[in-house]
Amino acid sequence: MAAEDSDLGGFLRSRRARVNPTSFNGATGIGRRVPGLRREEVAALAGISVEYYARLERGQKVRVSEAVLGAIARALGLNDLEATHLHDLAHSVEKIPTAARAQDHHGDAVRPALQVITDALGPLPAWITNYRMDFLAGNREARAVYAPLFANPEDKGNRARFIFLNPVSRAFECRWERVADETVGALRWYATRHPDDLELSKLILDLNLRSPEFRSRWDDHNIVHHRSGDVHVNHPAIGDLKLPYERLDVTHDPGLSLFIHVVEAGSTLARRLAALVADGFPASPGGSVCAPRGL
């Protein structure tokens, strides 16, 4: 990989291009050939030399202090997540090992206790994933909700593969474009924090080669890391489902996360989920499309 194509350089260039030059004194859009700030403007705002900043954008191995990274983050208007990502990228270039990376869970199986926990959380759908987005364990409710994820063996129970390589995902995900953006943003985040995971690298390479939708988003260098949110799917058995979720890290197994769909007991949604897991997956007349956005 050429230096100019490094993840650090690509991220810095993408954030620099995003900044409105009129936000800064003396910087205007007049006579500019590219959007955003010039390298020399970022360097001036960060209080560093242009050559030093240029070396960072070229992805060259540079020992950079936390103070300088903070100054660059402020100059580029990065949010907290992006600033953390910048630090991770810079440290990755420096090849600084971390104890957390050495202890990450890299396997495809989970401890039996985690399966017991997900089962005990029923009737709430609950499942365990790793940072590669593999569905590793889950209760009946979770497997019922995400049944399309397991229908095609080529997806290998991997959410990213399902989203970008399985056409069924566009019928299942009511907000496919948003989900696609978030999936790529999350993989960007994980790839930087787990640079030594060969399987994660192979997954990203495969998606880049096989999916233009993935490749265009990967080149944007956007990142996402949600702790809570919601999913909106069109389930093939019962139709439209909107489910909030909470994400909890598994402390004893770094790299694993427990996801739980939080559903109020006795609610209409809870009764629909109960019907989904009882006696197979019963069909629901009239439930074949997503509800209009905002409902």
Rank of each mutant, 00 (worst) to 15 (best):
I48P: 08
D220C: 15
A160C: 09
W127G: 02
P112V: 07
E94N: 09
P195E: 07
A142F: 00
A73W: 04
D249M: 10
V233Q: 00
A44K: 03
T22F: 11
P167Q: 05
G280P: 12
V19R: 13
A270Y: 08
V250K: 03
G29W: 02
R55Q: 03
I117Y: 11
G31Q: 05
R74V: 10
N20Y: 08
L76R: 06
H252K: 14
G9Y: 04
S257P: 04
F214R: 04
V263T: 12
L136M: 02
R271H: 13
F11C: 12
H235I: 06
K95A: 05
G229I: 03
N208Y: 08
F135G: 01
P153R: 02
R16S: 08
Y52V: 04
N208A: 08
V110E: 07
R215F: 14
Y53P: 02
H261W: 00
A137T: 04
A120Y: 08
D197A: 12
V116L: 06
A126M: 01
G70W: 03
S6F: 02
A100K: 14
A99S: 13
L56A: 03
H235L: 06
Y53C: 03
R178A: 14
R111C: 14
H226M: 13
I72L: 06
V68P: 09
A274D: 15
P195M: 09
L258V: 07
G107E: 11
V277S: 04
E246Y: 14
A144L: 08
E57T: 01
Q60A: 14
K156W: 00
D7K: 13
A3M: 11
N25D: 12
I48C: 09
A151R: 00
K202S: 15
Y131W: 09
A186H: 15
A75T: 04
N222R: 13
W176T: 06
L258M: 12
V93R: 06
Y131Q: 13
A67F: 13
D108I: 12
A283Q: 10
R55L: 14
L187H: 09
L121D: 02
S23D: 13
P21W: 04
L200S: 06
H232C: 11
H85Y: 14
N166S: 03
C174Q: 06
H221P: 10
R111F: 08
R15V: 12
V116A: 10
V110K: 01
A83T: 11
D104I: 14
Y52M: 03
I238F: 04
W176N: 03
L200H: 06
Y131K: 05
R63C: 10
R38Q: 10
R140K: 01
R18H: 12
P282V: 09
T183Y: 01
E41Q: 03
F150L: 00
R140S: 14
G286E: 10
I238Y: 08
L76V: 00
E246K: 15
A75E: 02
L276I: 09
F281C: 11
N20V: 13
N208H: 09
N79F: 05
A46E: 01
T192H: 10
N158I: 00
P244W: 07
K202R: 11
H235E: 01
V179W: 01
L273P: 00
A109Q: 11
R39M: 02
T268R: 15
Y52Q: 05
R143C: 01
A99I: 06
T183H: 05
